[in-house]
């Protein structure tokens, strides 16, 4: 049985967000504006994407699929650097984020579409875009968390890092413990998601499929497959983002380049 939501039913859910914003206002928590803005943005974005995807699915064009994918990667690359207290100066943040998330998403999506899902037409938008979207989201979150950890830690631990460089350590040797910590921080959400799946949380894809009438065991198998893809893409994007950022934050003379971050 497929549940079709009416505008009125969606409106009831909006009432919950309005209630949360009212609580923020009443308790002077100060997040009501941001919450309402985020909710409005989310509603508009998802409705637009629903309309857009309906159009794209009807066209069934490989070029259109690639174009949509590139737009998603561009947005993700921007979002990795947005809201970071420290980020690389100029276009470097965008470039490194873009390379990291697109690389991991492309490799893992292609693997999924070409092998396990056995899609004959792997650029068929109804398969490629949802898979790429889920994988890209995880790659983006993981890279964002890892880069925040890396740049904040380098900023806080400048003295010990430079003490090692002064003693003749290479840049990667001096930054290695911080890079490892940042990579672990970036992967934690994916690992938590896997550990808690089915016990603490009912994963979104599985829930969605069950609500859409899918057999729970089949939905679980699909979710397992996706979780494993997310673990792989999160790991790849985090490692790429951290290594590329560490290299950009230093130079060939193994110096820290604080002039390259804002």
């Amino acid at each position: 049985m497929t549940i079709v939501l009416t505008p009125l039913e969606l409106g009831l859910a909006v009432a919950l967000v309005v209630l949360s914003a009212s609580l923020s206002l009443f308790l002077s928590l100060g997040f009501h504006r941001n919450l309402l803005w985020a909710a409005v943005r989310m509603i508009v974005q998802l409705l637009l994407v629903g309309v857009l995807l309906r159009f794209v699915f009807q066209q069934n064009s490989a070029w259109l699929t690639i174009l949509i994918f590139l737009a998603m990667v561009t947005a993700a690359a921007y979002e990795v650097g947005a809201r970071q207290p420290h980020r690389l100066r100029g276009r470097w943040q965008f470039l490194i984020s873009g390379v990291s998330v697109s690389f991991s998403t492309m490799v893992v999506s292609a693997f999924a579409l070409l092998t396990v899902l056995g899609s004959r037409d792997w650029l068929e938008p109804a398969h490629a875009l949802p898979i790429a979207g889920i994988i890209l989201g995880t790659a983006m979150n993981s890279a964002s968390i890892a880069l925040n950890a890396l740049l904040s830690n380098i900023n806080n631990e400048r003295v010990p890092i430079e003490a090692q460089l002064a003693l003749g350590a290479t840049r990667l040797a001096a930054l290695s413990p911080l890079m490892k910590r940042a990579i672990r921080a970036g992967i934690i959400p994916v690992m938590n998601q896997m550990v808690g799946a089915g016990i603490i949380t009912m994963p979104g894809i599985m829930s969605g499929q069950i609500l859409a009438g899918q057999d729970p065991l089949e939905a679980a198998k699909y979710q397992i497959f996706l979780m494993l893809l997310l673990a792989a893409s999160g790991t790849a994007s985090v490692i790429a983002a951290v290594y590329l950022t560490a290299l950009r934050f230093t130079d060939k003379r193994h110096r820290l380049r604080f002039d390259r971050i804002v």
Binding site: I161, A163, Q164, L167, A169, K252, R255
Partner: peptide
Amino acid sequence: PAPAWRRNVMYLASETGWW
């Protein structure tokens, strides 16, 4: 190479670093 240079020309900051 910078690491070799710094092993020969070693700087010690007034604020010491420990890792």
